[in-house]
């Protein structure tokens, strides 16, 4: 890893100021960024740690919304987001316990790894990503593999999840990386059903609109009979072919619907 300056701001405003200028990078829990820097795939000249910013940490719930500070660890979400059980369950299955004690929701969403879990939850839930500058709907936030609507130096301070009537996340674990080989998050609200898929597409997390239409009409696994996902554009690697991933999307969606009840 190349050397860098290290800053520990105590407020969002100080963090934003410290991120001005080239080559500055926000540091959440570092569970992706530090390994990336070790491999010299990233070499920021300044790291701005967000873990000391009290206003960015913690989980609160009221009026049908679970609100999570951007610097909240996966472990804290797993323990504290009981008002949204599917989300707490997802957080409790990211990585392993030691990783969950460091990794943060803001870091995960800002990185938008195509196999990460949180992007599926945010997209299926219709979450709002709050930054130091604005609020971004999840539908407008994710922009292809590792791409987001965030500008340089923009920080995710909070993520607001409307709690659905029913929801479930099914993760087909890639056991070495502990990421999702494929993951499907299904959320049913009074406005209909949203289905978000991670780990599968070369364009990153995305919604499966055919399944959403079928499930909005009839929220049961049988409504998905005959629906298939096109293998074109699916990730294909040594862990699974595109056709295998496409198959898993349909299987996991059915399982999620059955588990959501």
């Amino acid at each position: 890893m190349y050397e860098f300056e290290f800053e520990t701001p105590a407020t969002v405003a100080d963090a934003v100021a410290a991120l001005q200028g080239d080559e500055a990078q926000a540091l959440g829990g570092g569970q992706t960024l530090l390994p990336t820097m070790k491999q010299r795939l990233a070499s920021p000249s300044r790291l701005v740690s967000l873990s000391g910013i009290a206003e960015m940490s913690g989980v609160s719930a009221d009026a049908g919304t679970v609100s999570i500070g951007g610097a909240t660890t996966h472990g804290a979400v797993a323990a504290g987001a009981g008002a949204y059980p599917a989300l707490a369950d997802l957080a409790g299955h990211i990585g392993d316990p030691a990783v969950r004690n460091r990794g943060t929701i803001g870091g995960s969403l800002a990185n938008n790894d195509p196999s990460a879990d949180y992007p599926a939850a945010a997209l299926a839930s219709g979450a709002t990503i709050v930054t130091n500058a604005r609020e971004i709907a999840a539908d407008d936030f994710f922009d292809g593999m590792f791409g987001t609507a965030l500008n340089e130096g923009e920080i995710i301070t909070r993520v607001n999840f409307p709690v659905p009537e029913a929801a479930n996340y099914q993760k087909f674990l890639q056991p070495a990386s502990r990421f999702a080989l494929v993951g499907v998050f299904v959320a049913r609200t009074s406005d209909g059903v949203r289905v978000a898929v991670t780990g599968a597409s070369e364009t990153g997390v995305h919604r499966w609109s055919e399944a959403e239409a079928a499930l909005s009409a009839n929220f049961s696994a049988s409504a998905l009979e005959g629906l298939a996902v096109d293998a074109d554009g699916m990730i294909s690697d040594l862990h699974g072919s595109g056709a295998y991933r496409a198959h898993l999307v349909a299987v996991l969606t059915k399982r999620a619907v059955m588990a959501a009840g």
Binding site: F6, G30, Q31, L34, P35, V99, R102
Partner: peptide, 25 residues
């Protein structure tokens, strides 16, 4: 690479992988 867990220590009571946290943190 934060896979194996041989480096687990506790920081403020939480188990963490000490190869994936900076000393300054």
């Amino acid at each position: 690479t934060s896979q194996c867990g041989a480096c687990v220590v506790h920081v403020n009571g939480d188990a963490v992988k000490s190869c994936t946290i900076l000393a300054v943190e």
